[in-house]
Amino acid sequence: MNANRISLSLTLERLWQFSLQYYGVREVKDACLHLQNQYKGNVNLLLLLKWLDEQNVCFREQDWHKVEECLGRSETLLHSYRDMRRKIKHHVPETLYRESLQFELQLEKQQQSDLVDCINALKLELNHAEPLTLRYCRQLGGEALYASFSEPVNDIANL
């Protein structure tokens, strides 16, 4: 058995609460939206990677494709819905638009559920290399955004 291999209990609720609080930081939210809109990054994946960074764990390099593949089921639906919501924003009553935002949040939560299932099926190890969030930003060509994600999350890391 690998001495670096660890066991970690990640639940959807733990990741969701972490995400809500972390994303609630203005600089983080702005950087996430920039990553999504300018670099075609996935915010839920970034939030998961940040949670793993806070735990000082990572998955194996050869498992990156598995993590990205698990997004496939929900990514197309989420993109299509998000585009539609943006188009109707000025053509529907505010209450209906707010309902559409709530539905989009449910789609986001489902995507996080898929990510949690995927991570829980992988072998995790202590991270002795660079943070996963840095690797992801670099992979997308948005390495400069990493500064917004690099600070430790003191109050919410143990969620």
Rank of each mutant, 00 (worst) to 15 (best):
E125S: 11
N37L: 11
Y22N: 05
L124Q: 01
M84S: 09
H34F: 08
V116K: 01
S19V: 02
L49S: 03
L33I: 14
Y39L: 08
C137D: 05
L15A: 02
R5I: 11
E61V: 09
E68V: 06
V25S: 08
R135S: 14
G142A: 15
R14H: 13
N158D: 13
C118A: 08
G142E: 04
D155M: 15
I6F: 08
Q106S: 12
L48G: 01
K66W: 00
E68L: 11
G141L: 12
L96K: 11
K109C: 05
A147Y: 11
N120M: 14
H128T: 14
R86F: 10
L45V: 05
E94F: 13
Q36L: 09
N56E: 09
G72C: 02
L33D: 09
V92S: 05
N120G: 01
Q102L: 12
S148D: 15
N2Y: 12
E54G: 07
C70I: 11
L45Q: 06
E75G: 00
N44V: 05
L107A: 04
S148L: 09
L78P: 00
Y97T: 02
A157F: 14
Q21M: 15
I156Q: 10
L107F: 05
E143I: 05
Y23M: 07
P131A: 08
L45C: 04
L71F: 07
E27I: 10
Q112K: 04
R82Y: 12
S100I: 12
L96H: 12
K89D: 08
E94C: 12
E130I: 15
R138P: 13
S150T: 03
C32L: 10
L33Y: 09
A3V: 13
L124W: 08
Q110G: 13
K123G: 12
L145R: 03
K66G: 00
Y97R: 03
L20S: 07
Q21S: 14
N42L: 04
Q102C: 13
Q112T: 04
T133H: 02
R5K: 15
